[in-house]
Design a protein around this nucleic acid. Structure first.
Length: 583
RNA sequence: GCGCUCUUAGCUCAGCAGGAUAGAGCAACAGCCUUCUAAGCUGUGGGUCGGGCGUUCGAAUCGCCCAGAGCGCGCCA
């Protein structure tokens, strides 16, 4: 059963196009750009006119004629150069609302061909403090994870911890340099470890000898030196704890906490495989795979450095192999910022040459960087960059001020208030990020992350809370939900918006673009607010109308909660307000 | 030097498998709480869609050129 008007109309048009011998790829509708003229429009006639050398209006008229008497269609007209405008009957829309309400998935379908996918996002590094630049990958990845699961795919998410490269050697070298040995390592907490890393960074930047030492220690660690290994394990576990805590706050989750170190074993296999296939070459002391250059130069994959260590090419290739062999991945999707585009091009091409992932779709979803006011990406090293915890705390403090104090509202003690603070603050932060299209970066502005008005997460939560409040009142007054009927234009607009949910989710899924959902959730909340302002529910005038609006409102709430869920955002039952707020 | 991405309202961004009056939010201004939570609603002002040329009946959207910005270009990840 299909509950989406768009899909239904597309199917209908397809059969009409077939009947008329027209190319069916143009048989589709979209929500109308001119809501004053129609609910849906089809531009197919305009596109067809070119190839058929016919007047677009003529073609449109032919199509329109066949649509005329179809079920649920109120009117069809051909306007302008050849737009087909379709208006649905109120009855069809109302019935659709009833059906969606009764559906556990709110009218959202599943993918036809569910498959196993591995999502690689997050990618934090050991001992590096998480800052606002790390926000995107985790938040976007979490949203995609939820969307993919919701449409029926089997998802395994992997954080792909950066725990095995030169930075590890740098920290260990720094500790040895300061302490003389690694005896005290196990007493260091994450803050201290981070300090060592910062110092190591500075030292290695200015001192070639320090870099050399770090490289040697890295190599020894990777070679299995037991003392280094033991120290490293502590660094890793402390970092993982800190990272987990951060992600926990943002409600970002991973199935696997594999790191680059877990791929180490397999790196050897990759190199062996490359040699066996005869695609490994020695070049300036390093072992590489040359890639097709075509008309533009492309640097080779470096499997083994001249010092014998592996590179992130090798670990990424090894990781692909592991995900294919052990997890049976049919699709692997990476979420990183655009600076790594070339890297993944190289890795994917390397994987193809090594034949380690046949028939596996490898995809790199590129997102824009979070930039500072200067338009340049935030960086850890130039100090003073706001870390994630501070950002969350600032947002929470702002929320706290707008909420009543513990005990001021019955049933809301310190714990309940603090829970609300968290839910709202995290919503503000995550939505601020997710409302942007993935591909484009955005300028980080602190005030925006603590804003609750306009296109923000809390705005949507607020709409949900208002509906919850109405539902409580309705229950107390014994008003029940009934069939939907459309009496006011605001109700019609709202219902049509609700009917889009399936297509929105499917688009967000196929484009791997959470902002589509964010945008829809916002628009739906907006349309609801307009409806709310004009159409009283508790004082609707008649019981039938009240019960119809009640159902509509509850449906809005359910859809909003689902959309927020897919974005990784919670919807609190209530949004309390401080007494003298807003003066 | 080469490659990738980008340039839309004062600011931050949508729109871009070509199409009917280029949309939001913020900021500004003017209204709306004795009525379901004003974290809200309604309205106003604000754009030669970086510039130019081209393809087309039709371009913010496609192609070429130019200008500007960011990122990336074998042994850091």
């Amino acid at each position: 059963m299909n509950l989406s008007f768009e899909t239904e109309l597309n199917n209908l048009l397809e059969s009409i196009f077939q009947k008329l011998n027209l190319e069916t790829k143009y048989a589709n509708v979209k929500a109308s750009d001119r809501p004053d003229l129609s609910d849906f429009q089809c531009n197919g006639a305009l596109a067809l006119a070119k190839t058929l050398h016919k007047n677009p209006r003529e073609i449109a008229a032919m199509i329109a004629e066949n649509l005329q008497n179809c079920a649920g269609i109120d009117s069809v007209s051909v306007d302008g150069p050849g737009f087909i405008n379709i208006k649905l009957t109120n009855q069809a829309i109302a019935e659709n609302m009833d059906k969606i309400s009764a559906d556990a998935r709110l009218g959202c379908g599943l993918v036809d061909d569910p498959h196993r996918e591995v999502l690689d996002y997050g990618g934090p590094n050991v001992a590096k403090e998480m800052h606002v630049g790390h926000l995107r990958s985790g938040v976007i990845g979490e949203a995609i994870q939820r969307i993919e699961r919701f449409v029926g795919n089997e998802v395994t998410s992997d954080v792909h911890l950066g725990d095995w490269g030169t930075p590890m050697g740098m920290i260990l070298a720094e500790i040895i340099c300061c302490d003389g040995n690694l005896d005290k390592v196990e007493s260091y907490n994450i803050a201290q470890i981070t300090e060592f890393y910062k110092k190591a960074n500075i030292r290695c930047k200015e001192d070639e000898k320090a870099r050399e030492t770090a490289r040697k220690i890295t190599a020894a660690l990777q070679d299995g030196d037991p003392v280094l290994r033991k120290a490293w394990e502590h660094l890793r576990s402390e970092s993982v704890k800190a990272v987990e805590e951060n992600y926990q706050k943002l409600d970002v989750h991973f199935d696997l906490w594999w790191g680059e170190s877990d791929a180490h074993q397999t790196c050897g296999e990759i190199v062996a495989l490359a040699r066996r296939l005869g695609i490994a070459q020695l070049d300036e002391g390093a072992e590489i795979i040359r890639l097709e250059e075509g008309n533009k130069p492309k640097p080779p994959v470096i499997l083994v450095k001249s010092d014998g260590g592996y590179t992130y090419h090798t670990t990424d290739l090894a990781t692909i192999k592991m995900r294919v062999d052990q997890l049976n991945a049919q699709e692997i999707v990476y979420f990183t910022d655009n600076r790594q585009s070339l890297h993944f091009e190289q890795v994917f091409e390397g994987a193809e040459k090594l034949k380690i992932a046949p028939h596996v779709k490898l995809q790199h979803i590129v997102f824009g960087t979070v930039n500072g006011a200067d338009g340049k990406p935030f960086k850890t090293r130039d100090g003073g960059v706001m870390n994630l915890e501070t950002l969350i705390e600032i947002s929470k403090e702002k929320v706290r001020q707008s909420l009543p104090k513990a005990g001021e509202v019955e049933g809301y003690g310190a714990a309940e208030i603090e829970k609300l603070v968290e839910q709202i603050a995290v919503a503000a932060i995550k939505f601020q990020d997710l409302k942007n299209t993935i591909a484009s970066g955005y300028v980080f502005e602190l005030e925006d992350f603590a804003k609750f008005e306009g296109k923000t997460g809390p705005y949507i939560q607020y709409a949900v809370a208002r509906i919850n409040s109405i539902l409580r009142k309705a229950k107390a007054a014994n008003v029940c939900e009934g069939n939907v009927m459309l009496s006011m234009p605001e109700e019609r607009v709202l219902a049509l918006k609700l009917a889009q949910v399936h297509n929105v989710v499917m688009r967000a899924h196929s484009e791997k673009e959470p902002s589509i959902i964010a945008d829809y959730a916002y628009t739906l909340a907006q349309v609801f607010s307009s409806f709310y302002n004009v159409c009283s529910i508790m004082n609707a005038g008649s019981e039938i109308l009240a019960s119809s609006r009640l159902r509509l409102a509850r449906l809005v709430r359910d859809v909003l909660i689902l959309m927020l869920y897919l974005l990784g955002i919670e919807a609190p039952e209530v949004m309390l307000k401080a007494e003298n707020k807003g003066e």
